[in-house]
Design a protein around this nucleic acid. Structure first.
Length: 157
DNA sequence: GCCAACGTTGGC
DNA sequence: GCCAACGTTGGC
């Protein structure tokens, strides 16, 4: 059963246009250093799942596009092993990796960005984890009804 | 840049 | 195992 996700990235660091410009429009989603987000990737994410690409910490936060999980499973995040990397974690080693990542492929940009402001204004989306108090998780599950509702808001359905 | 709301760390 | 101090996220 295909599942839906929302994955946050700061567009200054890595935007949907960066993903689109990658070879085969595919990249690994590295840098996740939160256990809950990691566990979603490890335990629930599967090849073929779809995810919203969310731009966070920017002028207009919101959902800008769709990508697909294309790695068979999550696998060790090598950026945690490298002391020169921003998200280096000495407690994660190749022998015993603490952090993992998946590969994602660009599918499309939404016809219209669905902004956080618009999402917050929708009563039907009040239960989304994205808009709940203090939620800072960078990977979140999205229900199929929420997914379809947002696609409609984007003029995609 | 501010700061609320987290999550993590580490002393005890 | 508690909890204060600290670090981070991310909207504004």
């Amino acid at each position: 059963m295909m599942k839906y996700w929302l994955m946050k990235s700061e567009p200054d660091a890595f935007s949907i246009d960066h993903l689109k410009a990658m070879p085969r429009k595919t990249d690994h989603w590295d840098g996740i250093r939160n256990y809950q987000a990691r566990n979603f990737m490890r335990d629930q994410m599967a090849k073929g799942d779809l995810a919203f690409f969310y731009h966070s910490n920017c002028e207009t936060p919101g959902i800008v596009g769709i990508m697909e999980i294309v790695s068979k499973s999550a696998y060790p995040d090598h950026t945690a092993f490298d002391a020169k990397e921003k998200y280096f974690d000495p407690k994660s080693t190749p022998e015993n990796p603490r952090w993992i990542m998946v590969d994602v492929k660009f599918k499309k940009k939404l016809k219209k960005t669905v902004t956080l402001q618009e999402i917050k204004a929708q009563k039907k989306l009040a239960d989304m984890r994205l808009v709940q108090r203090g939620n800072r998780l960078s990977i979140l599950p999205v229900s199929s009804s929420e997914w379809n509702f947002i696609l409609k808001m984007a003029g995609e359905l």
